[in-house]
Simulated assay, not measured.
Amino acid sequence: MDEHTRTELEAAAFRRLVGHLRERTDVQNIDLMDLAGFCRNCLSKWYLAAAEERGVEMDYEQARETIYGMPYEEWKARYQTPRQD
């Protein structure tokens, strides 16, 4: 497989993952961290790091909005539930 095709496939898989996480607002970040070792915030940080590596100007809140599909504070107010201990 050539590099361009690989990149396109990886990008499509990433978009599908982000879309899935946007739909599954019932899944809390803490649950993702406990089970998978990463969460939406991790994806935001990885997205930001990739942008910075390529010289794309972006801040953490912009990266979060890309992953969450809305400003983080709005997502948190709508969907984040208190932690169950």
Rank of each mutant, 00 (worst) to 15 (best):
A77E: 09
G55A: 08
E52H: 15
Y47R: 05
K76N: 10
G37A: 03
T5H: 08
R16H: 10
V27R: 13
E8N: 06
W46Y: 14
D2R: 12
T66M: 05
D34G: 08
T5F: 10
Y72N: 08
G37L: 07
D2K: 12
C39G: 03
E52T: 10
V18M: 04
T5Y: 12
Y68A: 02
M58V: 11
Y47N: 00
R22Y: 03
A63G: 05
Y47F: 14
R16D: 11
K76W: 08
R6G: 00
M70C: 09
K76H: 12
V56D: 13
K45N: 10
L9H: 06
E3F: 03
E8H: 07
N41D: 11
A50V: 01
D85Q: 08
S44L: 01
Q62M: 09
G19C: 04
W46E: 13
E23H: 12
D26R: 14
E53V: 01
I30M: 06
I67M: 04
I30P: 00
N29Y: 01
V56F: 08
P71H: 10
A11S: 11
R22V: 02
A12W: 07
L21Q: 08
F14A: 05
Q28H: 05
L35I: 05
T25V: 11
T5V: 15
A63N: 05
D59A: 02
R83T: 14
A13C: 07
N29L: 00
W75V: 00
G55L: 07
L35H: 13
M1T: 14
E10R: 11
R22S: 02
E52I: 09
L32S: 07
E10W: 08
T5A: 14
Q28G: 05
W46F: 15
V27M: 14
L48W: 02
W46P: 03
E65A: 10
Y60H: 01
W75G: 03
E23F: 06
T66F: 12
C42A: 14
R83Y: 15
D34P: 00
F14L: 15
E74Y: 06
D2G: 14
T66C: 10
R15A: 07
E61C: 04
E61D: 09
A11V: 11
N41E: 07
G55W: 07
E23N: 10
G55S: 10
E74M: 10
L21D: 08
M33A: 02
R15Q: 15
Y47D: 00
D85N: 05
Q62A: 13
R22E: 00
T81G: 09
G69M: 04
P71A: 04
D2Q: 11
E61Q: 09
Y47M: 02
R64Q: 14
L48Y: 08
D26E: 15
W75Q: 06
V56W: 03
I30G: 00
P71R: 13
M33H: 05
Q84E: 14
L48H: 03
L32K: 07
T7R: 15
M1L: 15
H20P: 00
L48E: 01
E53Q: 12
V27C: 03
R83D: 11
G19S: 06
Y47E: 04
V56P: 02
R78I: 03
P82S: 05
H20Y: 08
E3L: 11
M1V: 12
M58I: 07
N29H: 02
R16W: 05
